[in-house]
Amino acid sequence: MRRLAYGVILSALVAAGVAQAQSVTLLNVSYDPTRELYRAYNAEFVKYWKDKTGEAVTVQQSHGGSGAQARAVIDGLKADVVTLALEGDINAIAEKTKKIPADWRSRLPNSSTPYTSTYVFLVRKGNPKNLKDWGDLVKPGVEVIVPNPKTSGGAQWAYLAAWGYADQLYKGDEAKVKEFVGALYRNVPVLDSGARGSTTTFVQRGLGDVLLSWENEAFLAINELGPDKFDIVVPPLSIKAEPPVALVAGNAQEKGTTKVAQAYLEYLYSPTAQKIIAKNYYRPSKPELADPEDLKRFPPVELLTIDDPVFGGWAKVTPKHFANGAIFDQIYKR
């Protein structure tokens, strides 16, 4: 009987293995709000690859909080490519598994960032609480919905945007900046684990006055749920969110998919892909290739970047703000 049970488990294992070997299959492990983007892009890439090489390729998707996804790859999820929300998450994979070369950022154009985005406010129709800028979010009685920066990569951009705003406001007085960001997060009634969870909370559950959201996510929510219910407010200052992509060379080599996986990432910079990117409300890294119509939807906004002196790059930001017991963890103490 014991053998039987093993036999069954083993055959399931083999069956799963066989299923994977049937055609060329890529696994793209991504973060939460890219679902629609990659659904569109994958269809386009499959066609492109078929035309170019005659090879049929299937792209499988896995979505989740950026950090959780990186953790899964570190623990052995066989991703061929990772398209995550944070450079730090890909660095962690590179460091812990050695499956991604340390210089991965220089392997693709534009520091391996085929698209960028920013953080905006999604408010209820007519903006009843008149929320225009970051400073309005800390007023008493304003409920802010934002995902948990500990589980959602995107939420770290939101946190940093608020930090950057306060840094300018208080001219770098860190104690006051901390206080400001703390006040903002104390106005948050729910910390969902991912960007999508927060959108659902705000939109579907009717909770909160403002949702801090990826720009693409805000557009999408309006699109999916009707422009008659929500407005997008673009604050004068925000952050340039750069979600990078990388080839997981170790896994791709093992599966013999290096060529197609590399092509998958490179094709993201093609005119076709850049158009798809703009259509899905991401800011393309090569705007000249996208439809001008789509670009018009992105309002001009002053953007901080992660390498600005106030942040000093991810290598400084992660330990200072998001590590266990760091600044973010101190906000909710007591």
């Binding site: 959780a68 948990n148 589980t151 009634p189 729910v190 684990s193 963890d329 909710y332 007591r334």
Partner: peptide
Amino acid sequence: GNLPYRTEIAPLLIVIR
């Protein structure tokens, strides 16, 4: 609500860690 110190349950904290 998953707020640290307030509405965060122990199993969620395991997942976060």
